[in-house]
């Protein structure tokens, strides 16, 4: 059972308010080691420079969207196996299918409750302590 506090997380969302809400939610779940970026481009540079265990990324972002970001992560020989959880809107069924094909570890449909996010993270990492 991994300790949530030991998991390094990168949160990626173009909205400041949403990043803050995801941070608060993760904090409630016991996560302590978090950083965030407002664009996938910036996040990609950051996770290459300082590797993380988990990327939680929105799909709907300008410039590089969540799928392009996922693809770039998976293609990278160093960070390619980083756990990637995508946040999608309810109408993005085709996005989920494309993300699955690109190797997403799980997805969470927005709006999500803290319990839903925890469940998706635990499906990948096992029960959190």
């Amino acid at each position: 059972m991994p300790a949530a506090s030991a998991i390094k997380v990168m949160i990626v969302d173009d909205q400041v308010s949403m990043r803050a809400m995801i941070r608060r939610t993760l904090q409630d779940l016991g996560f302590r080691n978090m950083r965030d970026k407002g664009s996938a481009t910036d996040a990609l540079v950051a996770v290459k420079a300082d590797r993380v265990h988990l990327i939680i990324s929105d799909y709907n972002m300008p410039d590089m969207d969540g799928l392009q970001f996922l693809e770039a992560v998976r293609k990278d020989p160093v960070i390619g196996k980083t756990v990637f959880i995508m946040l999608t809107g309810s109408a993005d069924r085709d996005v989920v299918q494309k993300a699955a094909a690109l190797g997403v570890n799980n997805y969470v449909v927005k709006p999500f409750a803290a319990a839903a996010l925890r469940e998706k993270i635990e499906r990948v990492f096992g029960e959190l302590t």
Binding site: S17, M18, M21, P111, F112, A113, A114
Partner: peptide, 14 residues
């Protein structure tokens, strides 16, 4: 710490 349901979450401004 509010573990609201997904349906309830849709009412929130964020």
């Amino acid at each position: 710490g509010n573990f609201t349901s997904q349906q309830d979450m849709q009412r929130y401004g964020i």
